[in-house]
Design a protein around this nucleic acid. Sequence first.
DNA 1: TAAAAATTCAAACACTTGTTTAATTTTCTG
DNA 2: CAGAAAATTAAACAAGTGTTTGAATTTTTA
Lengths: 219, 219
Amino acid sequence: MWWKFLKVSATFTQKQLEIMEAAVKLFAGKGFDNTSVRDIAKAADVNVAMISYYFGSKEKLLEAIFIKYVTTMRGKLEEIVFAHDVTPAEKIDRIIETYIDTIADNRHFHLLMVREQGVMKNKVMYDGVKSLKLKNTSLIKSAIKAGAKAGIFKKNVDITILALTVFGTINQAFNTQRFLCEQYRIDPDNEAEFLKVIIPRLKIHLKAVVRSYLLVSDK
Amino acid sequence: MWWKFLKVSATFTQKQLEIMEAAVKLFAGKGFDNTSVRDIAKAADVNVAMISYYFGSKEKLLEAIFIKYVTTMRGKLEEIVFAHDVTPAEKIDRIIETYIDTIADNRHFHLLMVREQGVMKNKVMYDGVKSLKLKNTSLIKSAIKAGAKAGIFKKNVDITILALTVFGTINQAFNTQRFLCEQYRIDPDNEAEFLKVIIPRLKIHLKAVVRSYLLVSDK
DNA sequence: TAAAAATTCAAACACTTGTTTAATTTTCTG
DNA sequence: CAGAAAATTAAACAAGTGTTTGAATTTTTA
């Protein structure tokens, strides 16, 4: 089926999904360039030729991974919009919590994205990441505007820069996982333990930081 | 001179420094794996064999770059310690400003470090990065403790997590340079303009965020 | 159930990679 | 200035890369 990967749709067969899942873990762990198609084939338990057969090329496989995860994460973010009848402060809290949970769920892909975005030449992927960032920023923006209108948040906040803090903090946490494990005396191979320790701390900290920054000082 | 790169000292010849400077820019722009020794040789205007000749290998060249910059940056941070007779809040401000200035000055290396730290197997480099992080954390820690003792800062702050925010924000800014240029309508190739716009904003924002987070609420 | 289509496979392909070699040129030294 | 040391070079090297091939196998279809 030489016509399968005409990127007409973003749905994938079971075999494709298996290869993608094996690949994203390897890419996240060793980097895209340091992972060979033979590594992927071995991890996914298929023949090397299957990668070209199913995706066209190694680069297109990466593209497929990006399409899948960007779609997933955008979907998760959409859900936040439909959270009504909560205070602006609560909405900010929920946004932050959803961010952290979603990124943690897809941390392999997210690590890959963060690492690869700086050297990204591929337009499909660059645009995918950009659309995610814009969605994120606009989400925060609307929540802050609501709070500003209610008079409890500062006005004239540079949301682009605030977004740097929110995502920078989360990215830094997952990107320095090994270092953090040392700091908190966690076995670096015990991922579950790492998540158990870091996620609550991250949530509490980030919510406190953003809150104290946004709230109008009542001195 | 086959004995040159016995890593007995961290001083480099002029030729070595030229190669390292060319290499760090290429590594930052395209990634370590995506940069070939022939690319480096061309950029530094030397023969390919010179890289092995002067450094032993491409990996050792990266190591040399790490040694040089880690030493540089550690030196810059030392200076902060010698800033006496300032209030704790001012000291925090100075730390943040020095961080941002130092990272901006060495942004090519810093990008490389952030990108490569996740996939780093090399002990020399990993330890170098770790020592920088520990230095950073201990710097912030002592400044915060002074403020806490003076009663103007919160007590019991998780400084490891706070450091995630400080460095995560800065890293995110430089790692998403292209995206930020789009947001602020800056020509993506005009690095000077990018720095002129982003550095002041980054400083103001980060100081405000950390300050509002650390200051004891006087409600 | 037999022909057709889709999948799987080992092998080969062309190419790039980092490194080494050995000859040559340049620089240093006594 | 002559000889040694150091630096530079083009060419060759082995190893690994992503991809393609064409035959074999499995699955689907009619």
